[in-house]
Deep mutational scan, measured.
Amino acid sequence: DETGKELVLVLYDYQEKSPREVTIKKGDILTLLNSTNKDWWKIEVNDRQGFVPAAYLKKLD
């Protein structure tokens, strides 16, 4: 059920640097789980959840 889920576009590649982070690729469109922290957003990638720098993402309307 995708209702109410926010999507984000990945602006730059990011390689995870800790187990709490996930790797993302430029151009991916992913589900945003939590954006309350202005610097690190929690997203879902391939059934994995983790954090990436918010500056690497853009919210889609």
Score class of each variant (00 low, 15 high):
1 D>V: 14
1 D>Y: 12
1 D>H: 13
1 D>A: 11
1 D>M: 12
1 D>I: 13
1 D>N: 14
1 D>K: 12
2 E>C: 14
2 E>F: 13
2 E>M: 14
2 E>K: 14
2 E>L: 13
2 E>Q: 14
2 E>A: 13
2 E>D: 14
2 E>R: 09
2 E>T: 14
3 T>D: 11
3 T>Y: 14
3 T>P: 13
3 T>S: 12
3 T>N: 13
3 T>M: 13
3 T>Q: 14
3 T>K: 14
4 G>F: 14
4 G>R: 15
4 G>M: 14
4 G>S: 14
4 G>C: 15
4 G>Y: 13
4 G>W: 13
5 K>F: 13
5 K>W: 10
5 K>I: 14
5 K>P: 13
5 K>T: 11
5 K>E: 09
5 K>L: 12
6 E>H: 14
6 E>G: 12
6 E>S: 14
6 E>C: 14
6 E>W: 11
6 E>N: 11
7 L>E: 08
7 L>P: 04
7 L>C: 11
7 L>D: 04
7 L>M: 11
7 L>F: 15
7 L>W: 15
7 L>K: 14
8 V>T: 03
8 V>F: 05
8 V>M: 03
8 V>Y: 07
8 V>C: 09
8 V>A: 07
8 V>D: 00
9 L>M: 09
9 L>N: 02
9 L>Q: 07
9 L>I: 11
9 L>D: 01
9 L>R: 06
9 L>K: 06
10 V>M: 01
10 V>Q: 00
10 V>N: 00
10 V>Y: 00
11 L>H: 02
11 L>S: 02
11 L>T: 04
11 L>N: 03
11 L>A: 03
12 Y>Q: 14
12 Y>G: 07
12 Y>H: 15
12 Y>F: 13
12 Y>A: 14
12 Y>W: 12
13 D>C: 05
13 D>L: 02
13 D>G: 06
13 D>W: 03
13 D>Q: 03
14 Y>D: 01
14 Y>M: 01
14 Y>W: 08
14 Y>A: 01
14 Y>V: 01
14 Y>F: 06
15 Q>W: 14
15 Q>T: 15
16 E>R: 10
16 E>K: 11
16 E>Y: 05
16 E>L: 08
16 E>G: 12
16 E>T: 07
16 E>D: 05
16 E>Q: 11
16 E>V: 07
16 E>N: 06
17 K>H: 08
17 K>A: 10
17 K>R: 14
17 K>F: 06
17 K>T: 11
17 K>C: 11
17 K>I: 08
17 K>W: 04
18 S>N: 11
18 S>E: 09
18 S>F: 06
18 S>I: 05
18 S>G: 11
18 S>D: 11
19 P>M: 09
19 P>E: 12
19 P>C: 08
19 P>L: 08
19 P>W: 07
19 P>G: 09
19 P>A: 12
19 P>H: 10
20 R>T: 11
20 R>N: 14
20 R>D: 12
20 R>V: 11
20 R>F: 13
20 R>I: 12
21 E>K: 03
21 E>T: 06
21 E>H: 05
21 E>Q: 11
21 E>F: 04
21 E>A: 05
21 E>M: 04
21 E>D: 04
21 E>G: 10
21 E>R: 04
22 V>H: 03
22 V>W: 03
22 V>C: 09
22 V>D: 01
22 V>E: 01
22 V>S: 03
23 T>A: 04
23 T>I: 03
23 T>G: 04
23 T>K: 04
23 T>R: 04
23 T>M: 03
24 I>K: 00
24 I>S: 01
24 I>C: 08
24 I>A: 05
24 I>R: 00
25 K>D: 03
25 K>M: 09
25 K>L: 07
25 K>G: 05
25 K>W: 13
25 K>Q: 09
26 K>P: 03
26 K>I: 05
26 K>S: 07
26 K>Y: 05
26 K>L: 04
27 G>V: 01
27 G>I: 01
27 G>L: 02
27 G>E: 02
27 G>N: 06
27 G>K: 02
28 D>N: 09
28 D>Y: 07
28 D>C: 09
28 D>L: 09
28 D>K: 06
28 D>Q: 15
29 I>Q: 04
29 I>T: 06
29 I>G: 00
29 I>M: 05
29 I>H: 04
29 I>P: 00
29 I>C: 06
30 L>H: 15
30 L>I: 09
30 L>S: 03
30 L>D: 01
30 L>Q: 06
30 L>C: 14
30 L>V: 15
30 L>F: 08
30 L>E: 05
30 L>N: 07
31 T>M: 12
31 T>Q: 13
31 T>C: 10
31 T>A: 12
31 T>R: 14
31 T>Y: 11
31 T>N: 10
31 T>H: 12
32 L>R: 01
32 L>W: 01
32 L>V: 07
32 L>I: 05
33 L>H: 05
33 L>I: 14
33 L>Q: 04
33 L>W: 05
33 L>C: 07
33 L>N: 02
34 N>W: 06
34 N>L: 08
34 N>C: 11
34 N>R: 06
34 N>K: 07
35 S>T: 09
35 S>D: 15
35 S>I: 04
35 S>W: 09
35 S>F: 06
36 T>Y: 09
36 T>Q: 13
36 T>H: 12
36 T>I: 08
36 T>R: 09
36 T>N: 12
36 T>E: 15
37 N>F: 08
37 N>K: 06
37 N>I: 04
37 N>M: 08
37 N>S: 10
37 N>Y: 08
37 N>L: 08
37 N>C: 09
37 N>D: 15
37 N>A: 08
38 K>H: 11
38 K>R: 11
38 K>F: 07
38 K>M: 10
38 K>Q: 12
38 K>V: 09
38 K>Y: 07
39 D>P: 02
39 D>V: 11
39 D>N: 11
39 D>R: 13
40 W>E: 05
40 W>C: 06
40 W>M: 05
40 W>F: 06
40 W>T: 02
40 W>I: 03
40 W>D: 01
40 W>L: 04
40 W>N: 02
40 W>R: 03
41 W>K: 00
41 W>G: 00
42 K>T: 06
42 K>R: 10
42 K>C: 12
42 K>L: 15
43 I>P: 00
43 I>S: 00
43 I>H: 00
43 I>R: 00
43 I>T: 02
43 I>V: 15
43 I>D: 00
43 I>A: 02
43 I>K: 00
44 E>L: 10
44 E>T: 07
44 E>D: 07
44 E>N: 05
44 E>P: 00
45 V>M: 10
45 V>P: 00
45 V>N: 07
45 V>H: 13
45 V>C: 11
45 V>D: 08
45 V>Y: 13
46 N>I: 10
46 N>M: 15
46 N>V: 12
46 N>E: 14
46 N>Q: 14
47 D>C: 11
47 D>I: 07
47 D>E: 13
47 D>Q: 12
47 D>G: 15
47 D>N: 13
48 R>S: 06
48 R>T: 07
48 R>E: 06
48 R>Q: 08
48 R>H: 07
49 Q>W: 08
49 Q>Y: 06
49 Q>F: 07
49 Q>H: 09
49 Q>C: 09
49 Q>R: 11
49 Q>I: 11
50 G>S: 03
50 G>V: 09
50 G>H: 05
50 G>P: 01
50 G>Y: 08
51 F>P: 00
51 F>R: 03
51 F>S: 03
51 F>V: 07
52 V>D: 01
52 V>W: 01
52 V>M: 01
52 V>N: 00
52 V>L: 01
52 V>Y: 01
52 V>Q: 00
52 V>S: 03
53 P>M: 02
53 P>E: 02
53 P>R: 03
53 P>I: 02
54 A>E: 04
54 A>V: 06
54 A>T: 05
54 A>S: 13
54 A>L: 02
54 A>K: 06
54 A>N: 03
55 A>N: 13
55 A>Y: 10
55 A>I: 11
55 A>F: 11
55 A>R: 14
55 A>C: 15
56 Y>D: 04
56 Y>F: 11
56 Y>W: 06
56 Y>L: 09
56 Y>K: 06
57 L>Q: 00
57 L>T: 02
57 L>F: 02
57 L>W: 01
57 L>N: 00
57 L>P: 02
58 K>R: 11
58 K>F: 07
58 K>D: 07
58 K>G: 06
58 K>Y: 08
58 K>A: 10
58 K>V: 12
58 K>T: 10
58 K>W: 07
59 K>D: 03
59 K>F: 07
59 K>P: 08
59 K>T: 07
59 K>Q: 07
59 K>W: 07
60 L>T: 06
60 L>E: 04
60 L>G: 03
61 D>C: 12
61 D>S: 13
61 D>L: 09
61 D>M: 10
